[in-house]
Design a protein around this nucleic acid. Sequence first.
DNA 1: GACCTTTGTATTAGCGCTACTACAATCAGG
DNA 2: CCTGATTGTAGTAGCGCTAATACAAAGGTC
Lengths: 342, 342
Amino acid sequence: MGKPLARLKDVAEKTGFSINTVSLALRDSPRIPSETKVIIREAASELNYLPNYVAKSLVNQETKSIGLILTDLENPILTHVAQAIESHLAKAGYTTLFATSNNNLEVETRMIETFRSRRADGMLIFPTNHNRLDHIRALRQRNYPIVLLVGSSDSGIDAVSMNEQMGAYKAVSHLIGNGHKAIALIDPAPALGNIEKREGYLQAHADAGLAARPELVIDPKGHSAEAGYWAMASLMSRDDKPTAVFASNDSLALGVLRFCAQAGLRVPTDIAIVGFDNIEFAEYAVTPLTTVDYNASRVSQLAVERVIELIRHRDELPPPRNTQVTPDLVVRESSLGLRDRG
Amino acid sequence: MGKPLARLKDVAEKTGFSINTVSLALRDSPRIPSETKVIIREAASELNYLPNYVAKSLVNQETKSIGLILTDLENPILTHVAQAIESHLAKAGYTTLFATSNNNLEVETRMIETFRSRRADGMLIFPTNHNRLDHIRALRQRNYPIVLLVGSSDSGIDAVSMNEQMGAYKAVSHLIGNGHKAIALIDPAPALGNIEKREGYLQAHADAGLAARPELVIDPKGHSAEAGYWAMASLMSRDDKPTAVFASNDSLALGVLRFCAQAGLRVPTDIAIVGFDNIEFAEYAVTPLTTVDYNASRVSQLAVERVIELIRHRDELPPPRNTQVTPDLVVRESSLGLRDRG
DNA sequence: GACCTTTGTATTAGCGCTACTACAATCAGG
DNA sequence: CCTGATTGTAGTAGCGCTAATACAAAGGTC
């Protein structure tokens, strides 16, 4: 912690008042006359006094810090979430304890323990697996304020998230509406137990009376542009080729786009592409990308408000609520149907 | 902090041992026989005991946490830095306190105070202004372990960073070597007091005996793709047009690329473009982007090692060192000269 | 002037933990 | 069998702070 900092005791000795008087004065208590306050504040600032939050936390039984656990920051949209959450928390007087789980359940569990041990007042968690939430649910049942950043309707845990299933539904319905019947899904999440987008994909097919084609659903084993590139290469090497692709995030979609450019496939004439997240670069790709807009700032704000509300309730938390933000589809060039074009 | 957690006292009462014995047992002291340890550990886990790090920190005079302050996470490369730093710190047993300054010196100063008040053992800072470092220098002089993430040769503060001047030098020299004489610089940093890249740009001109053209240096007032787009639009609306552009980060460069695509300018035939950072999408742009590779993982690792080393020295810090990692230029299609092409 | 209030300040206890010290009980050596 | 070391456990103090309490001194009331 660097050189030992001045304590209340030092300010007390310098001014001749007692520790208690100094503490009250610095916290602007009405019991201390303003002349005394001035003297004490000056002495404190001369000594470069800064209150020791560790000691304060021990007494007050709250740390004014909350833990933020994300899977990773590879996805630019999670980055936005992280930054927005930090800003909101700072504004509310909270410090952000940050960690990434690397999509590893064990790491996630360990980081939760670390933050509990540090007595974070609450946590915001983007869990690695949307179904294996027992460790988190157990905490919530002991009244620990936790808000998940992915939907989980019946998990018994508060959640604020984008409605990913709805987003996927909108994206795929849009493609179906443009006449596509062979729509690929590139999504690594189902293999990790997170099936929201695939459900939306299937539902869109069902509602349109179109049979989904299991052979067009592919796990890219990663969520980078490179993973998207190779998933697309694999899809196009088969006999049964798609005419449209829904990629579960924009990085994957940009990889798909790149494959198409190199393979001489025209977008959207030969292949229509829709992504998910609406990252900055979606608009600046080879072909501007149609994508589902992830409203990071809205999700972040609601999640922070929720966790602070839970913290306020302390002893008896209200029943968990699951808030889903409905995403908009941003239609750009990469998915235009024939009738939309000049 | 959720419901009051079990304390040593509770474990002591449950087992009949004293608080002290329980504390020693849980910390695996050799003075406690292993049978006793087993009894105590079992009781602790039944009570769901987790050591209170706040109390521990108060006694030990160290929090095992370090503050990380970045300007923002808009730039994907800072995101990589953040994630890599968090991973390295976690591996070393440190928790990351995270904050963004939003390029606002006042916010930066406030966050530094917050982290000091929370008794972070050290800090890693990407400062908003590379010259206004007095507030940080003052801390360092009081033996507070701080490592900057931007170069600062004579600042009196430790630093680990990419050599941005060298990177810019390599980028611009590459363009000059390809025969370009009218090279624009799109860089918002000099207006904020950070002139490293501009210096490299000028040095490359000087060393090649080429006169730099001040009218081709433009401040895009931001570092987004959109800012790059409009900066390029402004440059191309003038009489004196560049034949090449060096953009101070890849987002700007992608905006430039987009402008060129829309304006019908061929890259690299009509305009050569070089970016900075080598973000994932540089490779997946309309035209794959030549760029300076920001070695985020190397910088992060060295910075974490340095700050931990400083923490180890506690009372008397060694003299500050400034480590600059030399970046490589990654040549892709966007800057190929005539002789490089088929 | 006896009594009550207000005002300014000091004292004490305690948050949960660890370091230091204390001290019986056991054991080894001469 | 006494001395001195070893072993297992407990007691005490203190990290820096706040809350609760205490208590003089001054001021107001009848």
